[in-house]
Amino acid sequence: MKTVITSTGNEVNSLFDKRFGRAAWFCVLDEATGETKFYQNENKDAQGGAGTKTVEKMVELGVSKVISGDFGPKAKDLLDKFNIQMVIIQDDDVTVDDVIRKIK
């Protein structure tokens, strides 16, 4: 099962990004193997529609769970439609690795 954790950088020690559509990077975690892979967010600085574009990406990556700080209403509707689970973590100053360790 693939899980995406929004990240400010391209490694597990990077801080968790609380933005979804405007996160800098996406960390794709394979929960079975613990393997991680990072993708840069091309829509980070889009004028509008960053959230929905990001959902496109999530569906293409075949993700079933997204962990972020919040989801906009449009992104939420779409994620719902594709049965992708949303998880909201509001903690400050946690790294992607901290989040990964919490899941385990």
Binding site: A46, G49, T52, E56, E60
Partner: peptide
Amino acid sequence: CEYNAIVVIPPVEFAEVNGSL
């Protein structure tokens, strides 16, 4: 689309215009 108002996701055959954008 300059405004990112169209979402198309080929693998699931999904295409929709977002009216608010």
